[in-house]
Structures are given as C-alpha cells and as structure tokens.
C-alpha cells in the first residue's frame, strides 16, 4: 500500500544540539500517526523538515509517494497544514482569512463549510484580531481543513481549546480518517492520542524511543493498574514502594503514582499504614494504566511539565 509519509534516517542538528537524530517512520494512507514527546524532543523540527520549512542535514522524506524537493508545488496542493504559530492577517475577518487560503488551493472547501468544521460559523464576520486564543486556534485548523487534501499536518491542533471544542475537533479528525485521508498529529494530550491515533511514536532527544498502537503500548508496558494520590514525604515514599503488589512507584511534582498488579492487597496495606498513623494522603484515584503512564515510564517526565 502506498505510504502517505515515509521518513528514513532524518537528522537535523543546530550546532552541537541534535534536534532530530535519525528518525524513521511511516504514515499509511487513511492512518493517523501521533508524534508524542516532551517540549524540545524534536517534534516540531521533524514537522518543519517534512514541510520544507527546514532543510534536514540528512535522511530521505517522501510525501504522497514523491521524493522531497521534487514537484513541491503539486504535493503542497494536496496537503493541509496547521502550524503551531499561524501567521494571520489581523485586519481580515474570519471568513476572509479562510477565503484567502481557500483561494490558494485548486480544490478547496467553501469558507462556510471549513468554518462549520471547527464551529466558527458565528464568528465569520469577526476580525481576526478580535478572536480569543482558542478561536484563533480553531481558525488555524480551519485553514488546514479548507484544502481538500490527502494528507494533513496538525501541530497541536487542540492546544488552548475548551474540552467541548476539543471533543468536536476529535470527531472532525476521525472523519478525515474514515474518508481515507492521512494525518500526522503532534499533541500534548495523551487522552487525545489514545482516542485519535492509530499509532503513536514517542520521541525523546530526537529519537523514537517507542512506537505502536496506543493499547499495544499500554499492555506492553503495564500489566498493572495505577493508584494515584497526593504527594507524600520521603519516608512514606520508601514504605509505599515496598508494599505488596507494587511494581513501580513514581513520585513527581505533587503527584504519587503506584503501579500494582494486585489492587486489593496494595490498598489494604495502605489502609493499615494510614490507621497506624504512618501515612496521610488525599485524592485517591484507582485507574487503568494509560498512554500517559507509558510516556512517564519511558521519558521519566510528564508530557506537560
């Protein structure tokens, strides 16, 4: 099957810093791939190299079957792009902004259709400069969606959106997949990656440290459930890590997480500690391990720190 994106051995260094250090991945037609990684991991540099905004030091990139650098214009006509910082003309209204970008593509949606995808129809006549941060973000996504593209690049599309707007955008992105379109998505939200992505690639220090379907990754790294509660002091941490069933304990800015293979035994042991006055905590949550846990385990950091 034809790959929408094929990247082999991509490298890009800024002086001594290797921003991208030998990345290889593919995105199939009709697939959503999520690039996950902490800030500075190399996600944005990777996306910029793919888009031709930066020249990679080495490596090959094929977009929609075409080698990088050849026939750029016709490839760009088949791509919809949302950049993290989108340059907008402040005096134009929302509709005019979408009309402008629609006018740059041979096959474009009407501005009305593009705006309804991101729920901005009511703001059509509002000048761009008067939009809130979340509205500007949705407009930036509309500028990607206005092109009837085969391949979409969405760089943190739901950052700054309220939960409702985020969920409706998820539905729109899922629809793109069911229309056979391919999406390369970067995100800070693990929940979003779990929900949307067919596969995710976790990037750290410019390298892919793990990749696969979200559920596969969770099962590969965690047979355990997670117990989450408020921070505890150092003495308590040591005791908790040695409780029955606990395989891993993470204590990290204001949060304690115990991964356990046996929730009832671990919890009853914790209860004993509490009644003995050796432990105090708040806000206990018991949950299945998530992609966030995988991320935390692999990189040692929460993604939004």
């Amino acid at each position: 099957m034809n790959q929408a994106i094929e990247v082999k051995n991509l490298r890009k260094a800024y002086g001594e810093v290797k921003a991208v250090d030998g990345l290889s991945f593919e995105v199939a037609q009709g697939e959503i791939l999520g690039l996950l990684g902490p800030n500075g991991a190399g996600k944005t540099t990777t996306v910029e190299c793919l888009l031709g905004l930066r020249r990679p030091d080495s490596g090959t990139i094929r977009l929609l079957g075409v080698e990088n650098g050849s026939d750029t214009q016709s490839i760009r006509a088949r791509m919809g792009v949302q950049l993290q910082s989108t340059g907008l003309l402040p005096q134009l209204t929302v509709r005019e902004q979408v009309q402008l970008f629609g006018g740059l593509y041979p096959n474009a949606l009407s501005s009305k259709a593009a705006l309804s995808l991101v729920g901005l129809e009511e703001k059509a006549r509002t000048p761009t400069k008067a939009l809130s941060g979340g509205q500007q973000q949705r407009l930036a996504v509309a500028l990607a969606l206005v092109n009837k593209a085969d391949l979409f690049f969405l760089d943190e599309p739901t950052t700054g959106l309220d939960p409702q707007a985020r969920q409706s955008l998820w539905a729109v992105i899922s629809d793109l997949r069911s229309e056979g379109k391919s999406v390369l998505l970067t995100t800070h939200y693990m929940e979003e990656a779990s929900f949307l992505c067919d596969r995710v690639a976790i990037i750290d220090h410019g390298q892919i440290i793990e990749h696969g379907a979200p559920q596969t990754l969770i099962h590969k790294h965690f047979h355990e459930s997670a117990l989450e509660f408020s921070a505890v002091d150092a003495v308590e941490q040591e005791q908790l890590a040695r409780l029955p069933g606990v395989t891993q304990a993470l204590f990290e800015n204001g949060h304690s997480t115990l991964y356990t293979t046996d929730v009832p035994r671990t919890m009853s042991a914790m209860y004993d500690l509490v009644t003995a006055g050796a432990l105090a905590f708040d806000d206990l949550v018991v949950r299945q391990a998530t992609l966030e846990d995988v991320f935390l385990k692999l990189t040692g950091r929460r993604i939004r720190s």
Binding site: L53, V81, T86, L89
Partner: peptide
C-alpha cells in the same frame, strides 16, 4: 510585520510560489 507574525512562513507551505 507580516514576516514577524509568520504570515509568509504559513504561505510557504501552500502550493503558491
């Protein structure tokens, strides 16, 4: 001003020359 607000950068990833 438009260069600083990355308008041209955004236009660069569209199919226009």
């Amino acid at each position: 001003a438009q260069r600083e607000t990355k308008v041209y950068r955004r236009l660069q990833v569209t199919p226009i020359s």
